[in-house]
Design a protein around this nucleic acid. Sequence first.
DNA 1: GGGCAATAAATTCACTTGCATATTCTGCTG
DNA 2: CAGCAGAATATGCAAGTGAATTTATTGCCC
Lengths: 123, 123
Amino acid sequence: MKTEEPLIESWRNLLSQYSRVAHELDRALQAEHCLTMSDFEVLDRLIAADGCKARIHDLVGDLHLSQSASSRAVARLEKCGLVERAMCDTDRRGVFVTATDRGRDLHDAARQTQLAVLQKHLA
Amino acid sequence: MKTEEPLIESWRNLLSQYSRVAHELDRALQAEHCLTMSDFEVLDRLIAADGCKARIHDLVGDLHLSQSASSRAVARLEKCGLVERAMCDTDRRGVFVTATDRGRDLHDAARQTQLAVLQKHLA
DNA sequence: GGGCAATAAATTCACTTGCATATTCTGCTG
DNA sequence: CAGCAGAATATGCAAGTGAATTTATTGCCC
């Protein structure tokens, strides 16, 4: 099996490593915490933000998700009581999202799951 | 910004590199050849197979796609006339998929697109 | 040979996604 | 200050996805 293009070879490696880990992560987070990988990512960025609080607009940039997908991920988290929306006083177009206590707790737990999966499939 | 867990750091890098390249690839293949990244992958594996012919079952293993998604990708390619299905004589549960001439031509063209994108976003 | 677990593929279903659009609000500009 | 381009979200829609199920067929064991 010759390796015609090293570039294609790299891409295939990237693709299969990503697929393997992403699939496992998604499965584990879903099974143990009812969270999508995307949901977890949103929660994770939120927790990392100053005061566990950020505007959706600012989250989108980090998320590898479109604006609409991000908006809906926040909606899902809100429905689960992991996050709260609040009007932004200074700009009423904006929406602040804050992690609730349950959100923080779940994040702590999910983070352990994430680490375990990464340890196993990315190490 | 401290880097608490190198493992998480690696995962983030993997994720963002993958997202960037995959998004570009998908966009370019769609725009220039009306092909999904998955469609192209199926076609690509098929062309690589002996005689441009393979059973769906055998393709699935390489594809990073579920069996159902693979089945549908083949259906899409067939609808576009890039691929043909044929009963498998020795096992009538199986289905052989063969690339048509148009399929081979489109693959050649799409491969150039792929290389260009990889060159630009993975180099 | 008849029955039955296992296999290949297709299909149903619930869900997520991105694009395009609608809605609400801000900040200029005249 | 009226009007209007542009920004921040939400939503309608079409499409793709995986898990589970269905359908057809095979191969084995009695």
